[in-house]
């Protein structure tokens, strides 16, 4: 076995020894420091677009992108300095300023990475406001609904479609503020080379990509007395469905306090 090279650095005042080749994000995580991310998706989208994960490295002019930049010997890193916190908040504000904030009616409410950040950053008002992009919702595909009014251009979906699945049904179109994720000729997903696999939905941090919801039809069938409604469930459903439900709080409390600690 080849001996691994270790690197010494300081993160938030703590001396850290990490393996060479680790990103700043990973190194911070190894000592329990959480750096917020948004566009980052391990092994799939490591591009540094959203800038939420920026940190301060002493001696460097700009912020470092912790999700991609590798640790270097002797680095002194501040992950939560006031300057970093302000910059992250400004970035979050900017993202929110161009996002349809209809969380109440969003399928991802409660499981949205953007919403979670907004909660974490105590966003009670958005400092920077202005023009919002307006896109028509594409719901022609039988499987996938695209609502780019909620898109934050993290491009996790593009990376998944293009690199993981090697399909490339979607990519970035236009530039600057007008950038958006689209298909060839801006067609509906129904009419392009999309395979409907839905991996893009799994990658989306917000509600910009979601499944076509057919629950209303099921409720309607259940209500119809003339219908004999049979349900069947696929093998993979039973080992994942539980993840959508949280134990009620009292269970947790009981467990925590039960031992009288």
């Amino acid at each position: 076995m080849a001996e691994e090279n270790y690197i010494n650095l300081t993160i938030d005042g703590t001396q850290v020894k990490t393996k060479e080749g680790m990103t700043i994000l990973e190194a911070a995580k190894s000592v329990g420091i959480d750096i917020p991310t948004l566009c980052f998706l391990k092994d799939i989208n490591e591009v540094g677009d959203c800038r939420m994960c920026i940190v301060e490295v002493e001696g460097r002019k700009g912020f470092a992108t912790s999700c991609i930049q590798k640790v270097e010997e002797g680095m002194i890193i501040h992950t939560h300095s006031p300057a970093v916190l302000e910059a992250r908040r400004v970035i979050l504000d900017l993202i929110l300023s161009n996002h349809h904030k209809d969380c109440l009616t969003c399928s991802r409410s409660g499981n949205c990475e953007l919403q979670n950040l907004a909660i974490k950053f105590n966003v009670q008002n958005i400092e920077y406001t202005g023009k919002q992009s307006e896109h028509t919702i594409d719901d022609l595909s039988p499987s996938i609904v695209r609502d780019f009014n909620k898109c934050i251009l993290c491009r996790r979906c593009i990376a998944t479609c293009k690199n993981v699945q090697k399909i490339g049904a979607i990519d970035c179109m236009n530039r600057g503020f007008d950038s958006c994720i689209s298909t060839v000729n801006n067609q509906s997903l129904r009419d392009v080379n999309c395979t409907n696999c839905g991996q893009c939905i799994e990658a989306c941090p917000t509600g910009a990509l979601r499944e076509k919801d057919n629950t209303d039809e099921v409720w309607k069938a259940l209500k119809d007395e003339k219908k004999y409604v049979i349900v069947q469930t696929a093998p993979a459903v039973r080992v994942a469905l539980g993840e959508e439900f949280r134990y009620a709080n009292r269970y947790k409390c009981n467990r925590k306090n039960g031992n009288g600690s």
Partner: peptide
């Protein structure tokens, strides 16, 4: 008969 499938899949 109305058959409803619960699937891990959007395709």
């Amino acid at each position: 008969i109305c058959v409803v499938s619960v699937m891990p899949c959007v395709a």
